[in-house]
Simulated assay, not measured.
Amino acid sequence: MKIETENGCEDVPDQEAGELVLSGAAILSKEQKEPPVVLLEQLSKRLDDLDMIGPSAVEYKVLAKLGKTLVQSGVRQSLLDQHQLDWLTFREVKQRARLRLVGDANGRVDLLEALNKSCRHFLESKQSPICLRRKLPESELDEKEMWLITQGANGADLSYESDWIRGRIQESQKKLWQYVKVGGDWRDFLKEMGRIKSKLNRAWARAFSEGRVLCVDEAIRGDRFVSPEEAAKTIVPKKGVSRLFLLTSSLPLSDYADHAQLTAIRSATRKWLNSVGGQIHAMGRRASKAQLGVIAEQRFGLSEDAFNAVWKNASFPNKSARGKIPEEKRISEKEIKYLK
């Protein structure tokens, strides 16, 4: 997989490259000879873990309590237990949740969009589209290893939101279906990209219904807490009403039942691992799982089993490396404790 680091652009084994990109220590290059399958598989796994957005207020039966806490005497609260609440617009909260699910460990780079750019670049590199007067069935496209880029009479562009192809096709050809030869591996990858996008949309809908995204309507007559069911059905409120959203991950732990705290602590531990992993890699050093487990127990109070569960889904550089770490590369536990 081709990635970009502070040392420039380089080809790195897929597993290692995927870990570096997920940790934020490297950026995925849009120029890929082979489809970056490992990275897509990692994102697919992360979409199953909605605790990255925040614990479920519905599952832990604290929705009614939170409703009364977040809106008191008809006024939305901005401070709770001396904890600043991060209220967001719909556009902001959707982007924040998306970065939690498919962003790097720093929450800055949208990795699904980075994969999109790789797909667009790959399709743009294909010359001489094949123009047909009929739409080929999926089975035939699988057999011929082709990809549909422009569809039918309206010239709808299907090349991952790119305008590149339309500029090269004459007006008389716009009534045709246009295909390019992509090869079996890339065709499978492009199909999986479509499934991941659908999975992301379903994850966002679940986050609402499970009370991981909370909602308050502000109006002249007073503010009110909006149930997950209503919020999911009516994203746009009535005229004269302003709707704000809150991820449950931004709430203090005291607002959850005791058994919910483990979920929040695991989320904090994963975030810490992702952060220190990128820092350690940038220093050219390495840390063992055992070292990190000891510090996590001291810092977060996690048991060995709980840490192992977090480690499994963490984005940590060289996590899959085997063998003893050379002494000149090993970072001490004291040094790790100073990282944040």
Rank of each mutant, 00 (worst) to 15 (best):
A268D: 14
K324P: 10
Q127H: 08
R195M: 04
Q15G: 10
E41F: 03
S23Y: 04
W147D: 00
L123T: 01
Q261N: 13
Q291C: 07
S139L: 13
T69G: 04
V109K: 13
V62G: 01
T5F: 02
G194T: 00
F189G: 00
E19Q: 10
E335Q: 14
N318E: 15
G194E: 00
M193N: 03
K2A: 08
Q279C: 10
G184T: 10
R96D: 03
M193C: 04
R187Y: 01
R330T: 09
Q291L: 07
F307K: 08
S139K: 15
N106M: 12
F245K: 01
L132M: 07
S288A: 12
Q84D: 07
K175L: 15
L214H: 03
K271R: 15
L50G: 03
R270W: 04
D163L: 13
E229A: 14
F307G: 08
K191N: 12
P35C: 02
W147H: 05
Q15F: 11
E34A: 10
I235M: 11
V75M: 09
E16V: 12
L246N: 00
S172C: 14
Q151F: 12
V102F: 00
A268E: 14
K337P: 02
I53C: 02
P252R: 00
L43V: 02
G183Y: 00
W164C: 03
D104I: 01
G293R: 15
D188P: 00
T269K: 02
R96Q: 06
R243C: 03
T248G: 07
S125A: 08
P129S: 04
A57R: 10
I265D: 04
S44L: 11
Q82G: 02
F316L: 09
E171L: 14
Y179T: 01
I325N: 04
R100I: 05
L273W: 06
G103K: 00
K329R: 14
S29M: 02
I149S: 00
E140V: 07
T269E: 06
E59Y: 14
I53W: 06
G277A: 11
K61Y: 11
H83Y: 05
R322V: 13
A57L: 08
E19L: 04
D258C: 04
P137T: 04
E230L: 13
D305R: 13
Q298H: 10
K33S: 13
N116D: 11
E304K: 14
S249M: 11
L251D: 05
A231M: 06
N106V: 07
G8I: 05
Q82S: 10
K65N: 11
L246R: 06
R96I: 01
K117L: 07
L39V: 06
G240P: 04
A156H: 13
Q178T: 09
L50M: 07
E6G: 09
K126S: 03
F225Q: 06
E145R: 05
R322M: 12
C215W: 05
Q279K: 15
S303Y: 03
W186N: 02
F300Q: 06
S139Q: 15
D188Y: 08
L101C: 06
A156T: 15
A205S: 11
A97D: 08
R322W: 10
E229C: 08
K117H: 10
K233M: 07
V38N: 12
G8F: 09
K334S: 14
A156D: 14
P326Y: 13
T269N: 07
E230T: 13
I295V: 11
E230N: 11
V276Q: 08
P55Q: 09
